[in-house]
Write a protein that binds this DNA or RNA. Structure first.
Length: 791
DNA sequence: CTAGGGCCTCTTTTT
DNA sequence: GAGGCCCTAG
């Protein structure tokens, strides 16, 4: 992340980082790379994408076609040919991870010049840098704070209660969501269409949005959406400012273009009016952020937005074996809104995608755990495997299992470091020091640790602050000289405000890490956790130490806080061999030898909620998510579904995802097919008779459709039902039709069977697809019929 | 003012 | 099954 204080902007030659040093190394690089050897190994399309520097260019890059390579090589090429200096290239990614990766790879190609690329980053971090440059044009001071979701919600709660709106009926979350949505669409309060604004609190949505923005200004704060929205406004209202950037950026590159929302699109389009050397890379089949306002349309109509745009397709897939690619391609072909690409595998067939059923989520976790250990025994590293879930609540089951097995794992995108309570508290102290007007931070820690300053006191402070239009901190200082509070809270407040004054002074001459330690100590914060008897207190103290340690990489407090608000992930232990656990969304852009995909059940994946809220478009997005999941795999993709899953703490029976039926038979192997597949021509299974309990979750159109299909039984009907679109049924040939490789069900009592793990045995009882078997060596076990064979 | 208990809702996905 | 909210007792 570029430190805002060192970003060269108005004059790059005196810039601390870019400038002379970068130019010198660019010269070195130019001679080193004069032969253009960085172009070696590129296929013709990739090469074309790298060499086409002038004018708008859209690179449609399917999964695993070397998208990042094209982007990084292109930047290297621009630098090597001297067409632009590092600080004249705007390169935008979606995630911090991607930005880091790109920096790293450019550095590998051309040396450390990339570190001198101040304008390589996420939309939000670049937006923040720009906004700090022109803060006054947005009515802000350059030191503005960036609120995260948590602060945002608390602020909105305050507004709602001030407006006497029943928070039960109109939860703050919803308004936050709505405001976010408006900002994603580039709408300021006055732009919100009346119908839209009416959605919240009987038509007050619009006003509340305005009130929220006003509060933000008073707090000298912005939220994530503002980081783009405000620059857009500035560009529109101040042609001179926009002109500076037009001169500045000779080349612009955008990664994951399919996931840009309207605001990002507007922002880009304004900037691209300059040199027009805009290169966007994306894949419409991997657009998975529609729920966050992403517009696939942006990519679909690129050539209209940027006339004369050249389009290059990358279709050679170097990542996945043919079976995996075949399965993924066929699945995604069920979507109708797509540009359409034909991914061509470059390697061998490899292993088929497997589909396995499990009795419940616990068994699913166990069998994945077993499989991991199998692969590990064969020499695969844990680093080469990942489990991708639809929703993060699915992770717990796996974590439990891995702890039991003693398998190392890492969670990406789980509860994050900077979102932990103790970290947020500590940060709140630092924020108060950095900016005494940070009311939200002040409110967070005013009574942490307990100082006898409860709601009543805070309420008083708030009244004073609002009345006098001052910050809470100032109000607190004032109140210690007055009689408005009882002696006890007054004294307590006096100590606190004096501390802050002292800390703020110390901040000028002290190293920020030492300052942090001092503050945490003197405020009694660390002491609070030392006294805490709960089991995780020690971990929290450890986290606080880690926080201070992580501050070292930053020059000052301000730089650190900026990093924290924008880069909400802390890099963690990459060098341990551990299996990765994350959501499908988090997996975008990553690849692993083996990918486990659990939870392919109707309602969970595709998500019922998405389908209810967004209908057919939602379903297509879910399907793209499935596509992203499968295409993360180089060698092995293993899909699982469970017949029973606990949702909201209640066991619910579930049926296999429709996506399973959309997989092509030729690339897929059904490994174990207990419950859900066994009714298809093999007689009845007890699970078919299980009615869902409660009914609330499944009392939905999607579920009912699924039930009907299930009752209809025949697979051709199913296929037709699923594929009905464009007005007529459309049956895709060769789909996965319940062909279990196991001779499922119908074992007789007394029959001899063989089990991979337990060996030979005799069937004692049959209950649906579950067998009680007396194994010769292993004793009596209950097993799923598909786990045994006839000897 | 705090602590503790009961009750409620909720669960996608993220910069 | 967990976190947030409200109420009551100290």
């Amino acid at each position: 992340m570029a430190d805002p204080n060192t970003v060269p902007f108005f004059d790059d030659d005196d810039a601390p980082q870019g400038g002379i040093a970068a130019r010198a190394s660019a010269g070195v690089m130019r001679s080193r790379m004069s032969g253009g050897d960085y172009l070696e190994g590129l296929n013709p399309e990739q090469r074309d994408a790298v060499l086409t520097l002038d004018g708008p260019l859209l690179v449609l890059a399917g999964a695993g076609t070397g998208k990042t390579r094209v982007l990084t090589t292109r930047i290297a090429h621009i630098l090597a040919t001297g067409r632009a200096r590092p600080q004249e290239i705007l390169a935008v990614t979606f995630t911090n991870k991607a930005a880091r990766e790109m920096k790293h790879r450019i550095a590998t190609l051309v040396g450390d010049v990339a570190t001198g690329m101040p304008w390589l980053g996420t939309f939000h971090s670049i937006g923040a840098t720009m906004l700090r440059r022109h803060a006054e044009l947005a009515g802000l001071k350059p030191s503005f704070t960036i609120l995260d979701t948590d602060d945002q919600i608390r602020l909105i709660k305050q507004i709602l209660s001030a407006e006497n709106i029943d928070e039960k009926r109109w939860p703050a979350r919803n308004l936050a969501w709505a405001i976010d949505g408006w900002k994603n669409r580039g709408l300021t309060p006055k732009d919100v269409p009346p119908g839209d604004g009416a959605l919240f609190a009987n038509g007050k949505g619009k006003e509340l949005y305005a009130a929220y923005q006003e509060r933000l200004r008073v707090l000298n704060a912005v939220d994530f959406g503002d980081l783009l929205l405000e620059p857009i406004r500035i560009f529109r209202d101040h042609a001179d400012v926009l002109a500076i950037y037009h001169q500045r950026f000779k080349f612009m590159l955008v990664d994951e273009y399919q996931d840009t929302n309207v605001a990002q699109y507007l922002w880009l389009r304004l900037l691209a009016q300059g040199p027009r050397n805009l290169c966007c890379v994306g894949d419409d089949d991997q657009s998975i952020y529609g729920w966050r306002g992403a517009e696939v349309d942006n990519i679909l109509r690129f050539d209209k937005d940027f006339p004369g745009a050249k389009v290059i397709r990358l279709e050679r897939n170097y990542r996945s074996d043919a079976h995996i690619l075949g399965a993924a391609s066929h699945l995604i072909s069920h979507n109708k809104d797509r540009l359409g690409k034909t991914l061509r595998p470059q390697g061998e067939d490899g292993e088929r995608v497997t589909v396995s059923g499990a009795w419940d989520s616990g068994e699913e976790a166990r069998s994945i755990g077993d499989e991991i250990e199998n692969l590990q025994r064969k020499g695969d590293s844990l680093n080469s495997m990942a489990i991708l879930v639809r929703a993060s609540f699915q992770m717990r089951e796996f974590e439990d299992r891995f702890v039991t097995l003693g398998l190392d794992y890492r969670v990406i995108g789980g509860p994050r470091f900077y979102e932990r309570q103790e970290i947020r508290d500590a940060l709140a102290y630092l924020r108060c020091i950095n900016s005494s007007a940070d009311d939200l931070a002040f409110e967070r820690i005013v009574n942490v640790p307990k100082r006898g300053l409860g709601d009543a006191t805070v309420q008083t402070l708030n009244n004073i602050a609002r009345g006098a239009r001052i910050s809470l901190m100032e109000a607190a200082r004032m109140v210690t000289d007055s009689e408005e509070l009882k002696p006890k809270p007054r004294e307590s407040l006096r100590v606190l405000t004096q501390n802050f004054t002292r800390w703020a002074q110390a901040a000028d001459h002290m190293k920020h890490t030492e300052l942090a330690e001092m503050v945490l100590d003197e405020s009694g914060y660390t002491e609070m956790w030392r006294q805490d008897r709960s089991p995780d207190a020690a971990g929290r103290l450890e986290n606080l130490k880690e926080l201070v340690r992580s501050m070292e990489q930053f020059e000052n407090l301000q730089g650190f806080l900026e990093h924290v608000s924008l880069v909400m992930d802390a890099e963690s232990g990459e060098n341990v061999d551990a299996i990765t656990l994350m959501t499908l969304h988090g997996a975008k852009g990553l690849e692993y030898d083996t990918i486990f995909l659990p939870g392919w059940e109707e309602g969970l994946f595709p998500s019922q909620r998405t389908m209810d809220e967004h209908g057919a478009a939602g379903l297509e997005e879910e399907r793209r998510l499935a596509y992203v999941g499968i295409t993360r795999a180089r060698r092995r993709a293993k899909i699982y579904f469970a017949t029973n899953r606990r949702i909201h703490g209640q066991w619910q029976s579930s049926i296999p995802s429709r996506f399973l039926d959309e997989l092509p038979e030729e690339h897929v192997e059904v490994v174990e097919a207990p419950a859900a597949f066994s009714n298809r021509g093999f007689g009845e299974s007890r699970f078919d008779r299980l009615e869902p309990f409660g009914g609330s979750t499944y009392d939905t159109p999607g579920w009912q459709r699924a039930q009907q299909r299930k009752q209809a039984g025949g697979f051709q009907e199913r296929g037709a039902g699923f594929n009905a679109r464009r007005g007529g049924p459309m049956v895709i040939e060769g789909e996965l039709v319940a062909k279990s490789t196991s001779n499922a069900a119908s074992y007789g009592i007394g029959e001899r069977v063989f089990h991979d793990k337990f060996g030979y045995g005799e069937v004692l009882e049959v209950e649906g697809n579950k067998l009680l078997v007396a194994f010769d060596k292993a004793g009596h076990k209950r097993v799923i019929d598909s786990f045994v064979k006839r000897p």
